[in-house]
Amino acid sequence: MSRWDGIDEFTAVAEQASFSGASKRLGLSTSAVSREIARLEDRLQTRLLHRTTRRVELTDAGREFLARCRRLIDERDEALAAIQPDDHAPRGLLRMTCSVSYGERFIAPAVNAFARQYPELRIDLDLDNRLRDMVGEGYDLAIRFGHLTDSRLMARKLASRTLILCASPDYLERRGAPRDLSEIASHDTLTGSSPQWRFTEGGRE
């Protein structure tokens, strides 16, 4: 049971001066409104309303409680409206990270256009090739090449790329060209930032 239970019902009955009027305003049955207020009075150990067959009146405690309830409801509704604006436009801070070359060429222009469209949104774009701990470092979004290895995250594929294994003519003259994948491990390689190389051979990865 929430400590808010009964407050909206009590305020509606007090302002409408009737249970039927409050039930119409809240979209609840009269019995449901009556039940919530009875539970509220039981929790408070205080009578808030005088009920007669023709009218509902506030007790002294009820009048004092109504003034406080109105302030609570107004502040609650303002708080909800502040984070759920009518236009649903993005607001606040979006922290994202992307590799340097891809970010400069593709992501930064898209982010600039997005920021112009939503001027109340602040975007912090960190261009860095290092793998980041998104959760630990407080990032909302990371754009990276490769496969997702952190089970705490969700991924969506944006695009694909093809990597080509190549060597200089001078190197191949000195070391020879590998005839199959098993020979690559014995060659000198520049691995870059990727911890794994993935090959497709005969349609199989």
Rank of each mutant, 00 (worst) to 15 (best):
I7D: 14
I7A: 15
F10Q: 01
T11I: 15
A12K: 13
V13T: 15
Q16K: 15
Q16C: 15
Q16F: 13
F19E: 08
S20M: 12
G21C: 12
S23N: 06
S23C: 04
R25N: 13
T30A: 06
T30K: 10
V33D: 03
S34N: 08
R39L: 10
L40M: 10
E41A: 04
D42L: 08
L44P: 04
Q45H: 14
T46Y: 08
R47G: 06
R47Y: 06
R51W: 04
T52K: 08
E57V: 09
L58T: 00
D60T: 09
G62M: 02
G62E: 03
E64Q: 13
F65C: 02
L66Y: 14
A67P: 00
A67F: 02
R68W: 04
C69F: 00
R70N: 05
R71V: 11
I73V: 15
D74Y: 02
D74E: 12
R76K: 14
R76A: 05
D77E: 15
E78I: 08
A79E: 10
A82E: 03
I83V: 14
P85K: 08
H88Y: 00
H88V: 04
L93E: 07
R95T: 09
C98V: 03
S99A: 06
S99H: 09
V100W: 00
V100L: 05
S101E: 10
G103N: 01
R105P: 00
F106R: 09
I107H: 02
A110W: 07
V111T: 07
N112L: 14
A113H: 03
Q117S: 14
E120G: 12
E120R: 13
L121A: 15
R122H: 10
L125R: 01
R130N: 02
R132Y: 05
R132P: 01
M134T: 05
V135I: 12
E137D: 11
Y139P: 03
L141Q: 11
I143R: 01
F145T: 10
H147K: 11
T149M: 09
T149R: 06
D150Q: 09
L153F: 04
L153P: 00
A155D: 08
R156K: 14
K157C: 15
K157W: 01
K157A: 14
L158N: 13
L158K: 12
L158A: 07
S160R: 15
R161G: 10
T162Q: 13
T162M: 05
L163Q: 04
L163D: 07
I164S: 05
L165W: 05
S168T: 13
S168A: 01
D170F: 03
D170Q: 11
Y171G: 00
Y171V: 01
R174Q: 10
R179K: 06
L181S: 07
S182L: 04
S182I: 01
S182R: 08
E183G: 07
E183M: 10
A185Y: 02
H187P: 00
H187G: 00
D188R: 01
L190P: 00
L190V: 06
T191F: 02
S194T: 09
Q196V: 11
T200D: 04
G202M: 02
R204A: 08
